[in-house]
Design a protein around this nucleic acid. Structure first.
Lengths: 189, 189
DNA sequence: CGTTTGATTCTACGCGTGTTGACTGACGGC
DNA sequence: GCCGTCAGTCAACACGCGTAGAATCAAACG
């Protein structure tokens, strides 16, 4: 990650590439993979469509670069601690939507390749959660927690379902806490 | 819904139309609205693409006919009863995926028109749930329950996330019961 | 029987898409 | 000062899509 001296050609290149990447995130999350067009991304970045191809090679590759920026939250510690970390991460996502994560969520339901790419990230997340759960069915419990956070995020930011779309994140995680705790910390079979 | 005598032209028409509708459900749920093509639907129904247009007018209209078949589960009674109904409905959806519902879920994340159409159904579902919850924040609680069932369904049938995809529905709702109960029946603020 | 209706297919148009390759012009090393 | 390199543009191609309309052929009906 070298920072070329300002005004240089390399710096201009980085600047433009970042602008395209940013525009692509917004377009992908707004329209989904299929509806998103390279021309729309280019227009949003105030650049020619050919340049997007020149820099990123293909739409798929541009998309891959976008979702590469999606972070996987860290989860560890006791079940109660893990639950709190999960809830905190969810609260963050409710407050300020991470465009990369959303693009990933929306597109993985449309684009097969996106789905496999995203599945890896989700699996990693679930594995982390499972490790913190001391139960025989930890894997299933982790998958349920992951599915629940996914549902909440999708409902709020993509479907924008009435009550959830505008609710205070603190109230949401307050209501969700017993829910997550029952899955993470409650004695299993 | 008259049943014309067998072998007649009208009956043949109904038969073909139903075959197209069935094929369309499967194609829409498999590929989502955007990737699904009329040609693919026609091929799956072993029919010419022009015939699909002739019968349904447009792709949008065909899609509307498909999701019109998506049922909205009934929810009523005491909070505990409502929770049980919600869990039962979810178990059904986990066991045998309703193609119309899935097509609706997948497509509403891709197609704007589908989203508004589906939002109405979801809102009706949430209203039913809210009515059974005796709490000041019943609407938010209902929205959360709806979001959770959505997340579980999407994870299992669309994302096919590892553990959830193959889990026994009974175990899933067993784990989810305290979760839904805490939202539906637990004393609020 | 002839005529008409309707189910079904065939062919083709127009458009938007991802992608390509030639082009332009400014920057940077020699 | 010269020339290669590279950011950025432009016009076009090939393809697949939704859709329209003519053509085909068998069933319905007098």
């Amino acid at each position: 990650m070298t920072t070329p001296r300002p005004g240089s050609r390399a710096e201009q290149r980085q600047r433009t590439e970042a602008r395209i990447l940013d525009a692509a995130s917004r377009v992908f999350v707004a329209d989904g993979y299929e509806r998103a067009t390279i021309r729309a991304v280019a227009a949003a970045a105030e650049v020619d469509a050919g340049l997007v191809m020149h820099y990123f090679g293909s739409k798929q590759e541009l998309y891959r670069r976008v979702i590469d920026a999606a972070p996987v939250p860290e989860v560890s510690g006791t079940p109660a601690e893990a639950a709190e970390q999960i809830l905190t991460a969810l609260a963050d996502r409710l407050a300020s939507p991470n465009v990369a994560s959303l693009a990933l969520l929306r597109s993985m339901l449309t684009n097969p390749e996106a789905a496999t790419a995203a599945s890896a990230g989700i699996a990693r997340y679930e594995a982390q959660i499972a490790q913190a759960i001391p139960a025989a069915d930890a894997d299933l419990r982790a998958a349920l927690i992951s599915a629940i956070t996914l549902g909440i995020t999708v409902s709020r930011h993509l479907i924008k379902s009435g009550e959830l779309a505008t609710a205070d994140p603190a109230r949401v995680i307050g209501l969700l806490r017993p829910c997550v705790l029952s899955l993470a910390a409650r004695p299993g079979d």
